[in-house]
Write a protein that binds this DNA or RNA. Sequence first.
DNA 1: CTGCATCCTCAGGGATACTG
DNA 2: CAGTATCCCTGAGGATGCAG
Lengths: 126, 126
Amino acid sequence: MAESGGRSGDEAMCPYRLVLEHVTSRWGVLVLIRLLERPHRFSELRRAIGEVRQVSEKMLTQTLQTLERDGFVHRDAQPVIPPRVDYSLTDLGREAAEQVRSLALWTERRMGEVEQARKAYDEARA
Amino acid sequence: MAESGGRSGDEAMCPYRLVLEHVTSRWGVLVLIRLLERPHRFSELRRAIGEVRQVSEKMLTQTLQTLERDGFVHRDAQPVIPPRVDYSLTDLGREAAEQVRSLALWTERRMGEVEQARKAYDEARA
DNA sequence: CTGCATCCTCAGGGATACTG
DNA sequence: CAGTATCCCTGAGGATGCAG
């Protein structure tokens, strides 16, 4: 969201818009798409996302917590040493993730048209 | 997008993710949904969005410019005084907007489950 | 390994004033 | 009315260090 998982300054708007911002946030999108594929451990998820765009440990934690709190992500912490935590999608999360992924795929498919539009736009002012 | 229409610091990632962030950005979402309904003039759009969450003139301009450059929004500036500018969706923009709206509506429908999940989450640590 | 806490930077974005 | 230009501040988010 304009924000990722932050919970600040969120009081002055309709509640569902907040959830939407969590889901469509920079890191939220990537997390949901990755988890749609299969469950991931924390650092596994971090590496997987890193292929696209590096995410800090802090932001990943924050994003996962927000998505967990909203009921999209299930967190399974095993009490072993060293710690092992697996993240997966809930049914609700899967529904959200599928829509997000479909939007992402659509965008990818349409990149040609977007780049063409940009070229036209940029040339029209030179 | 964590960002709205800004074009800064955008170089270090795959291009389609940028477009996705434009579309799912705080103001991008609201603009697209409003324009899906019908074309709007600038300040008309600003008022319409203001019902949900106040947007500054600057951010609305920036968002519209980004969406226009990406080929989602069509800008029709009439050379009259006082100026009159109408914004509408292109075919590409309509496709994007429909997906965004459907995600927004889904979120709205699921708010009950989200709030329930939050309650459970919050209670589990008190 | 998985987190939480702290500090710090920088850019997203609001407020204001000015132009055509 | 529809922008453009400036200034300024908050907070998203990275870096680092520590704990379980």
